[in-house]
C-alpha cells in the first residue's frame, strides 16, 4: 500500500504549489500515472481522499491520466505498447525493454 506515501507526497506538492501561488483552496488535481508505474489507480483514489481530508484539497476532484506502457524489443528494435512488464515482442517472442509508462507526476492544479 505505498499509494498512501505517494498520496502524501501529492498533497505536499499541492500545498507547496498553492502556497507559491497564494491560494488556499484547490478544486482539482491532475495526476499522470504510467501503466507500468506500479500504482494501483483505485488505491491511489482512496488514499488521496483520505490524506486530503481537512487540507486545502479537501473534496478536490482527482483526474488521473493513465499513460500507456511502452517498450522496445531488444532483438528487432521495434517499439510497441506493453500491457505488462513481462509482455514479449509479438514478432520475435523475445524480452522487451520498457521505454515508457513508468512516470507518476502531478501535472496540473485548479485553485482559487
Amino acid at each position: 500500500m505505498h499509494e498512501m506515501s505517494l498520496a502524501e507526497s501529492v498533497l505536499e506538492i499541492i500545498e507547496n504549489s498553492a502556497a507559491q501561488h497564494g491560494s488556499n483552496k484547490v478544486h482539482a488535481v491532475w495526476l499522470e500515472i504510467g501503466q507500468l508505474a506500479g500504482v494501483e489507480v483505485e488505491a491511489m483514489r482512496f488514499c488521496f481522499d483520505a490524506v486530503t481530508r481537512g487540507s486545502i484539497a479537501d473534496g478536490a476532484r482527482l483526474e488521473i491520466i493513465e499513460t500507456p506502457g511502452m517498450g522496445r524489443c531488444l532483438n528487432c528494435g521495434k517499439s510497441m505498447h506493453l500491457n505488462e512488464r513481462y509482455d514479449l515482442c509479438p514478432e520475435c517472442d523475445m524480452p522487451v525493454e520498457v521505454t515508457g509508462g513508468t512516470e507518476m507526476r502531478v501535472k496540473e492544479l485548479e485553485m482559487e
Binding site: 505517494l6 501529492v10 504549489s17 501535472k107 496540473e108 492544479l109 485548479e110 485553485m111 482559487e112
Partner: peptide, 22 residues
C-alpha cells in the same frame, strides 16, 4: 509554473512535478 485564468474564481496551474521528487 505558469498560470492562466479560468473564469474569475479559479485558475489552472501547471505543476509537472514527479510524485517521488522528495
Amino acid at each position: 509554473d505558469h498560470t492562466h485564468d479560468h473564469g474569475e474564481s479559479t485558475r489552472r496551474v501547471q505543476v509537472e512535478r514527479d510524485i517521488l521528487d522528495k
